[in-house]
Amino acid sequence: MPDMKVNEKHVTVGKQFHDDPRMTMRNVNVFYGEKQAIHDVSIDIGKNEVMAMIGPSGCGKSTFLRSLNRMNDTVEGCRVEGEICMDGESLYNTKLDVVELRARVGMVFQKPNPFPKSIYENVAYGAKIHGLADSRIDLDEIVENSLNKAGLWKEVKDRLHQPGTGLSGGQQQRLCIARAIAVTPEVILMDEPCSALDPIATARIEELIKELSENFTIAIVTHSMQQAARVSDRTAYFHLGQLIEVNPTEQVFTMPEHELTEGYITGRFG
């Protein structure tokens, strides 16, 4: 077993920066009250890149992901320090409104969480609250396009007005993805989107992530190393709140630079 202690002054190994970044994070620290959950993380997420974040339970990868669209704001006592920028604009700068930010950075959660409304209402919700559609026809088009992109249109086009909660787990998760892309965000954050799904549904979502990466930047937290290997361009390995290694996915899974990464991917702990 490798030495699991983390150095006080840890340096991330690998290629944590990107030439054409969508989001840049520098020296990010996240605290829950007194407890520090994220230690000094610096990383870039490139345009139209799929970035996978892996690591053992409690390593802070979800916390880090949630600070990218300020979902941590809703958590009592949570504090984010450091610089998180999107297209050069600081997120925690008061000038950038959180509502606007979340329209630009969409999120898909671990457990499928469609609203207890119709499928149509679910997808149309974002467009409605942000005033993106001028007419009913516009809205219909947004709904159809988003469901199409999420690969769900064929399955649900005859029952758009039935409750979204009546779909299967995998369909619900694709509905949530459709809902997120309906407002055409630049970045989509996915927090273990397949952990509640069966293998077949998981495969569909993974295919979908591949397709979406043509138009969107995606950051995905996952427990499954195989999934990270299948869908992502680069992989970041987190350990006890520190970013240990960032490298192209292929390299991480074949020749990890850091011994902790190696220990994790070879299944010695995690």
Partner: peptide, 21 residues
């Protein structure tokens, strides 16, 4: 369920919209 609140917040709904909708 908090997941419904999170979903709405994640879509960019304001707190008022989360409550009302």
């Amino acid at each position: 369920p908090p997941s419904i609140r999170e979903a709405a917040l994640g879509m960019g709904a304001s707190r008022h919209q989360v409550v009302m909708h």
